[in-house]
């Protein structure tokens, strides 16, 4: 049975409401998890665990949110992601829109790429694979 985009969004919304203690109407597609919804680093682990449970999927470490990229000098220099780093991020985050981030490449702004829509697209990709 296929699950529609609306159904994925609805479940993701429920996960984010429970994990972050926000209201339904705050969880809109363009909302940034960290900046708009107040997610802290540990919340991302919580969100991954809850998504697994809600959708019956397995999410490997670093699959939704890459680790060991932003603290690797091979990919980051002077607090900015290098060309090599951007290439790595695009390969590992096909579900994310990295174009806006590509303009600044500031490591501090990296968390802004994780919007509600990013999470929905990630789940859809997992469900289709």
């Amino acid at each position: 049975m296929t699950i529609t985009q609306e159904e994925v969004f609805s479940k993701v919304q429920e996960v984010l409401v429970d994990a972050l203690g926000v209201d339904d109407d705050e969880v809109v597609p363009e909302a940034k998890l960290a900046t708009d919804l107040g997610a802290e680093s540990i919340d991302f682990l919580d969100i991954v665990f809850r998504l697994e449970k809600a959708f019956g999927i397995k999410i490997d470490q670093g699959e939704m949110i890459p680790d060991n990229v932003l603290n690797d000098p091979k990919y980051v220099q002077d607090e900015k992601v290098t060309d090599h780093g951007m290439q790595e991020l695009r390969e590992r985050l096909p579900h994310a829109d990295l174009d806006a981030f590509d303009e600044s490449r500031n490591v501090d702004e990296f968390s802004d790429i994780f919007t509600v829509d990013t999470v929905v697209k990630f789940v859809q990709t997992k469900l289709e694979s």
Partner: peptide, 10 residues
Amino acid sequence: IERLDRQGAS
């Protein structure tokens, strides 16, 4: 345990 991996557990 509901979930256990390298980063943590729920």
